[in-house]
């Protein structure tokens, strides 16, 4: 019992430390004006700074990108919506900051061409496979239509006539 009593202050201290740590974490996660890093990064990951090509804004380590993220945080704290913020960046830095090009003008090619090419490729493959599985050469005068499979009765008839012909020649 004595041992348990002697550990009680230690437990209280640990509990207090835990509370302090949680409070500290909360204050770092909830940055200025109640805008979290996650909220900033949700928009930042869909933007690209022209200075650091191919690096999304949310993970870009440069000073320019840090400034942009702070600007997003400020705009969020001012009540701007995601669309409004993106439009601001497009107006100020050009459409190339967007991760997805706007669906206007020649940009449509990016959205239309790949699926169109895949469909065209699939169609060509389909036609080619079908052509390969069909006989292309038939004997004239056989009376058979090209590509039509012979029924067993027709084959039997053909074999019988073929044998008869052979017998005649003997």
């Amino acid at each position: 019992m004595n041992k348990i009593f002697s550990r009680k202050p230690l437990r209280i201290t640990l509990f207090a430390l835990l509370l302090f740590a949680l409070a500290f974490t909360a204050t770092t996660v909830f940055a200025q004006d109640g805008v979290t890093d996650d909220e900033v990064n949700a928009i930042a990951k869909e933007l690209y700074c022209p200075v650091c090509e191919n690096t999304p804004l949310d993970v870009c380590p440069t000073e320019a990108c840090r400034q942009w993220r702070e600007l997003i945080r400020l705009q969020l704290s001012q009540g701007m919506t995601e669309e409004e913020i993106k439009q601001y960046f497009v107006d100020n830095y050009g459409a190339r900051v967007l991760s997805e090009p706007p669906r206007t003008g020649l940009n449509w090619l990016i959205y239309i061409l790949p699926p169109a090419m895949i469909l065209a490729g699939a169609f060509i493959l389909f036609r080619s496979f079908r052509a390969w599985t069909k006989p292309e050469v038939v004997e004239a005068g056989s009376g058979e239509e090209r590509g039509e499979a012979s029924s067993p009765a027709e084959v039997d008839d053909y074999v019988a006539r073929f044998e008869e012909e052979l017998k005649k020649r003997k």
């Binding site: 052509a131 292309e136 050469v137 038939v138 004997e139 004239a140 005068g141 090209r146």
Partner: peptide, 9 residues
Amino acid sequence: MTETTIPKR
């Protein structure tokens, strides 16, 4: 017997 090649579509 003559062979004829059927044109591909």
